[in-house]
């Protein structure tokens, strides 16, 4: 299953990047990669192969399961909100401390 391999790789990449990146913006980017992998996972693995878009059009074809798509639009909107809030926080951190490095920020936090 090549799609499952790709999704596993993306999940691993997201976790690795979030664990190792020292720049705040990079952490946000890898958080988005992780989120995209989860969305791909839901959309791909819950769909049957010969499936049409779940919009009734008269002829009785095989439709794709509409439930994961409805759940994933929720996930996308929440992900956009979280990303916006995180980016605004990093902008304010940069204005305050002049750096976005995790280690430096933690040292500054310790000193105060």
């Amino acid at each position: 299953m090549p799609m499952l391999t790709l999704i596993l790789l993306m999940i691993g990449l997201g976790i690795y990047g979030m664990a190792t990146s020292r720049h705040l913006i990079k952490s946000v980017i890898f958080l988005n990669v992780l989120e995209a992998s989860v969305i791909l996972f839901f959309l791909r693995l819950f769909t049957s192969d010969p499936g049409a878009v779940p919009i009734l059009n008269g002829n009785n074809g095989a439709y794709v399961d509409p439930l994961p798509q409805a759940l994933m639009i929720t996930a996308i909107v929440i992900g956009a909100s979280v990303t916006a809030l995180t980016l605004m926080m990093s902008i304010k951190l940069y204005h305050q401390y002049g750096t976005l490095d995790w280690k430096t920020l933690l040292e500054v936090e310790d000193r105060q």
Binding site: V77, A84, L87, M88, I91
Partner: peptide, 17 residues
């Protein structure tokens, strides 16, 4: 509602930059 919320977010980002 969603469009006004996202417009607010975009506008604030541009203003902050």
């Amino acid at each position: 509602k969603v469009s006004s919320g996202l417009t607010l977010i975009f506008t604030q980002f541009v203003k902050e930059g």
